[in-house]
Simulated assay, not measured.
Amino acid sequence: MAEREEIALGATLDTLLKAVRRQLAECRAEDADFEARLLVEHFTGTSRTDAISDPDRPVTRQAVGEIDAALARRRAGEPVYRILGFREFYGLTLKLSPQTLEPRPDTETLVDLALAEARRIVASRGRCRILDLGTGTGAIALALLSMVPEAEAVGVDISEEALATARTNADINGQRERFVALRSNWLTDVDGMFDLIVSNPPYIPTADLETLSREVREHDPRAALDGGADGLDFYRSIAAGAHRHLEGEGAVAVETGYNQKSAVEAIFAKEGYSTVRTARDLGGRDRAMLFMPVRSG
């Protein structure tokens, strides 16, 4: 209670930032300094430069109240980006909703891997049609569109709320004309052919869901996490069905769990794919794989 009173009386950027940082440290936020800056900058409409150059700037009572409410949510285990309602990903600002996975830096590894392939396809064919399975916020598809002007994408999701969020994100980031949101249970209702199929599928084994952090377990949608008994159900589905929608020189790129590389490679090999490239995330863990069908003759 004392900390909340101190924040309520903290009338400057400097005192507010210090008080927020202390409260976040007490609730064991992973990076209290970073989260404090995010919350203070968002609710006061200031920047890090403002905090350095004008630390005595007065803070409005409304901003203090909004930050106090945000801290209560954070203490209850809600991730900071869920509180803000958006997250930056690959240079884009993406809105979040309860039915979308929060895009994380690890997935940028998949974008990097797919981006090189999309550019290769454009160089060869002059365009690139992308299918993003389990699109959620639209993060992967929209990141690729932002980097490849010749590309267009279809984002597939079973959740109407997720698709609405992806459409909004396409609008926000100027990609609505090249992005189509399609409701489908993975490939079930997908028509047409694509040059590149991408996906960050659910890959957590069901039994491991309860071991995830509170922030993930309680706030990311379970359907975007649960990969079945061994975490590999959706890789099997993608590998079995992708060939029906893949152009002749097309490829499939997927994100994987750090310990799933060999298993995912075997699943795609069984369906007639060869591993073209793999990529590791910033922590040095196996994180993304690119496959192409084995061509006879």
Results as ranks from 00 to 15, higher is better:
Thr15Arg: 14
Thr15Ala: 15
Leu17Ala: 09
Lys18Ile: 09
Lys18Met: 09
Ala19His: 13
Ala19Tyr: 03
Ala19Cys: 13
Val20Trp: 00
Val20Thr: 09
Val20Ile: 09
Val20Leu: 04
Arg21Pro: 04
Arg21Gly: 06
Arg22Gly: 11
Arg22His: 13
Arg22Gln: 15
Leu24Asp: 09
Ala25Lys: 14
Glu26Asp: 15
Arg28Ile: 07
Ala29Ile: 14
Glu30His: 11
Glu30Leu: 07
Ala32Pro: 11
Ala32Lys: 04
Asp33His: 14
Glu35Ala: 03
Glu35His: 04
Ala36Tyr: 02
Arg37Thr: 10
Arg37Met: 05
Arg37Val: 05
Leu38Lys: 07
Leu39Ala: 04
Leu39Ile: 02
Leu39Met: 02
Val40Lys: 06
Glu41Gly: 09
His42Ala: 12
Phe43Ala: 05
Phe43His: 00
Phe43Arg: 03
Thr44Gln: 09
Thr44His: 05
Gly45Tyr: 01
Thr46Pro: 03
Thr46Gln: 10
Ser47Tyr: 10
Ser47His: 11
Thr49Ala: 15
Ser53Val: 15
Ser53Lys: 12
Asp56Trp: 10
Arg57Ser: 10
Arg57Met: 13
Arg57Val: 08
Val59Phe: 07
Val59Cys: 06
Thr60Arg: 08
Thr60His: 01
Gln62Pro: 05
Ala63Phe: 01
Ala63Met: 09
Glu66Arg: 14
Ile67Ala: 06
Ile67Ser: 01
Ala70Ser: 07
Leu71Met: 05
Leu71Lys: 00
Leu71His: 01
Arg74Ala: 03
Arg75Leu: 10
Arg75Pro: 03
Ala76Trp: 02
Gly77Ser: 10
Gly77Met: 08
Val80Leu: 04
Val80Phe: 03
Tyr81Ala: 09
Arg82Thr: 00
Arg82Gly: 02
Ile83Glu: 09
